[in-house]
C-alpha cells in the first residue's frame, strides 16, 4: 500500500466527507462496469414478452433458462440450427492446442534467448517482439493464401496454426522477461554439474516457471478464445469458432429478434474466459509481477 494516504491527517469532518465522496465515485464506476453484465444476464433469463413490456433494468420475474438452452442447442446460425454447441467445441479444440504449442515454444525460445545468449540473440528478440504489435490486417491476406496452399483453410487446424504463430511473440516476451530474472549463475552451476541444454531446462528452469506458465496460458487462452478477426477471415459455416458464430447468431435478420437468446449466446461465449479470470486472474497479476527466485 502506498504511504501517500497514511501520512495525511486532515480534520475528522473533512476526512469523513472525503471518504464518502471516495466511496461514491468507486461505487458509481462499479455500477458502470457491472451494468452490461447485469443487463446481459437479466435479459437472458426473461422471455420476449417480458423484454418488450418491462424495463431493461428490471429483475426477471422468474429464472427462465429456456433462452440458454435455445442458444446452446437450437438457435439458427446461418442456415444451420444447431445452437452454439458445435462452435463451442470448435473453439475448445482450437484454443487448447494453440495454448499448448505457443506456450511450449515460447518457453523454449525465451529460455534459449536469455540463458544461452548467442550472437544476434537481442536482434532475434527485437524482431519477435515487434510481432506482438503488428496489426493483423497486414497478414490476413497472405495467411489466407498460405492456408489454402497447405489445404487447411476452413479447418480448426488452420486456426491452431495461426494462433500458435501469432501468440508466439507474446509468449516469448513473457518467458523472456521472466527468465532474465533467473540468475545466470544457476545455469553455469548446472553446466559444471554436467547438465546440458534440455536437462537444465527440464530440471532447473521449468520447476521455476509455474507462475509465468500460468500467465502465458491465461493470456493465450483469452486471446485465442476471444479472437474474431482470424475466425471470420479463415473459416465459414461449421468450422467457425464461437465468437464468429455468436456474432452471426445475433445478426441473423430472419424471423423475430430474440434478444434473450442473443444475450444467452453472449453469456455462453463469454463464460470460459470469465471463469478463467475469476478463478485464476490473481495468479495472472501475481505471475506478471513475480520475480523468479526468492532469497
Amino acid at each position: 500500500m502506498s504511504d501517500a494516504a497514511r501520512y495525511s491527517a486532515p480534520r475528522p469532518w473533512s476526512a469523513l466527507i472525503l471518504r464518502v465522496l471516495l466511496w461514491f465515485v468507486l461505487i458509481v464506476f462499479a455500477i458502470w462496469f457491472l451494468l452490461p453484465a447485469y443487463v446481459v444476464v437479466g435479459t437472458s433469463l426473461k422471455d420476449l414478452d417480458e423484454i418488450r413490456g418491462g424495463s431493461l433494468l428490471a429483475l426477471p420475474h422468474e429464472l427462465n433458462f429456456s433462452a440458454w438452452r435455445h442458444a446452446w442447442s437450437e438457435a439458427c446460425i446461418g442456415v444451420e440450427c444447431t445452437g452454439l454447441k458445435p462452435y463451442f467445441w470448435n473453439s475448445v479444440s482450437m484454443a487448447l492446442p494453440g495454448v499448448v504449442v505457443s506456450t511450449l515454444l515460447g518457453a523454449l525460445t525465451g529460455y534459449a534467448l536469455t540463458k544461452w545468449k548467442f550472437k544476434g540473440a537481442n536482434l532475434v528478440f527485437a524482431l519477435i517482439l515487434f510481432g506482438c504489435f503488428v496489426p493483423f490486417q497486414v497478414v490476413i491476406l497472405p495467411m489466407a493464401q498460405t492456408l489454402g496452399k497447405i489445404g487447411i483453410t476452413n479447418t480448426v487446424y488452420g486456426l491452431i496454426l495461426v494462433h500458435s504463430v501469432y501468440g508466439l511473440a507474446f509468449t516469448t516476451l513473457f518467458f523472456r522477461n521472466y527468465y532474465v530474472t533467473i540468475p545466470d549463475e544457476l545455469v553455469r552451476a548446472a553446466t559444471i554439474d554436467g547438465a546440458g541444454f534440455f536437462t537444465i531446462f527440464h530440471r532447473i528452469i521449468l520447476p521455476l516457471s509455474p507462475p509465468i506458465i500460468v500467465v502465458s496460458v491465461i493470456w493465450q487462452f483469452t486471446q485465442i478464445w476471444n479472437d474474431f478477426l482470424f475466425g471470420a477471415s479463415f473459416t465459414t459455416g461449421g468450422a467457425q469458432p464461437i465468437t464468429v458464430a455468436m456474432n452471426n447468431l445475433v445478426n441473423t435478420t430472419t424471423g423475430v429478434k430474440q434478444y434473450n437468446v442473443d444475450m444467452a449466446a453472449a453469456l455462453i461465449t463469454a463464460a470460459p474466459t470469465l471463469l478463467v479470470y475469476i478463478f485464476a486472474g490473481r495468479y495472472f497479476v501475481r505471475g506478471l509481477t513475480a520475480g523468479s527466485v526468492k532469497g
Partner: peptide, 14 residues
C-alpha cells in the same frame, strides 16, 4: 573435472 562455488551460491531453488 572441476567444481565451482559461485558468489550467489547458485543453489537450485526447487
Amino acid at each position: 573435472d572441476i567444481a565451482m562455488v559461485f558468489q550467489s551460491y547458485a543453489l537450485y531453488p526447487t
